[in-house]
């Protein structure tokens, strides 16, 4: 899929993926009850796309999608977190040729692999990089941004862990070969 230059399919996947990321971020984020932490379904989607189209697509969907979402909704991208979205997409994408979702089965082993990858990726992203950038760029108080990162990170891990896994599982099911199908 990714050579030195992107295939048309990857490019389109990035474009449409980013658009969907924006829409999900705008409309489908469920409040958890914990003050200002929401379940961002857009990250579950990002995970799916990363697994389907690989790291480059994952990274760029995160980057473009998040930046556009911020621009359109808040008038200005929050760069520190935009960058993290890109990294999360990238790391999860690295697992794509291990998981090979298109082969139509997404068993326990793959589910575990996927979740290990996503947890690690997001831990690094939300617990370390995001707050650090916040401090470097905006000189925000350390304890504040680390707590923010922690809460957001955990929320996103759970989101991707539950919804993301379900999405991949559902997608894999649709891949099942119709040759195996018998009318009853």
């Amino acid at each position: 899929m990714q050579g030195e230059k992107l295939s048309i399919k990857t490019i389109v996947a990035i474009g449409i993926g980013a658009a969907v990321f924006v829409i999900l971020g705008r409309f489908v984020s469920l409040p958890t009850g914990v003050p200002n932490t929401t379940i961002e379904t857009s990250y579950a989607f990002l995970a799916l796309m990363a697994v389907l189209f690989g790291p480059v697509a994952g990274a760029l969907i995160g980057l473009i999608g998040h930046a556009l979402k911020d621009l359109i909704m808040y008038g200005s991208p929050w760069w520190s977190w935009v960058i993290v979205s890109a990294l999360v997409g990238l790391f999860i994408g690295l697992s794509s040729n291990k998981i090979k979702i298109d082969e139509g089965e997404f068993g326990v082993k793959k589910i575990v692999l996927f979740n290990i990858v996503q947890v690690v990726a997001q831990a690094v992203g939300w617990f370390l990089i995001a707050p650090t950038l916040d401090i470097l760029i905006y000189a925000e108080p350390a304890n504040k941004v680390y707590l923010q990162g922690l809460v957001a990170g955990i929320a996103n891990m759970i989101t991707v862990g539950v919804i993301g896994t379900l999405l991949l599982f559902g997608y894999a099911k649709t891949r099942s070969k119709s040759g195996s199908l018998e009318k009853e």
Partner: peptide, 10 residues
Amino acid sequence: WPFRHWPIAA
């Protein structure tokens, strides 16, 4: 009826 256990994708 004959397809009740099929994935819709098929």
